[in-house]
Amino acid sequence: MSAIPPPPNGSYPPPPGGLPPGNGGYGEYGGMQPNFGTPPNNYLVWAILTTILCCLPFGIVSIIKAAEVNSKWAGGDFAGAYASSAAAKKWATVSAIVGVVVGVIYVASGLATTTGSFSQF
């Protein structure tokens, strides 16, 4: 697991298969490099955790946003990828908070103990 060695000065090899389209206008990100810089976090772990732990609608939105991060980054839309990353973080936070609040209300209301004849989680 060593770090990627830096390429020799000024001799980046051309990417196989040519450059992807739609790369113009991002000169400040490194011009001809399609994958330059550190990709944003897609928060997929949070999306999966909230989906499995019962906050379904927001968990699904988080997964969609996570897919958008990877999709936009691969297509050269770096600003869009960062925007989707921020949205993924927001929805993961929303689902976590809603999940905790609903869970507390649910348990505190006594519904949880009076209904289940067996555990359904």
């Binding site: 209904t115 289940g116 555990s119 989680f121």
Partner: peptide, 8 residues
């Protein structure tokens, strides 16, 4: 039965 609450 009864160890955990039912999934909300």
């Amino acid at each position: 039965a009864g160890h955990y609450p039912t999934c909300p």
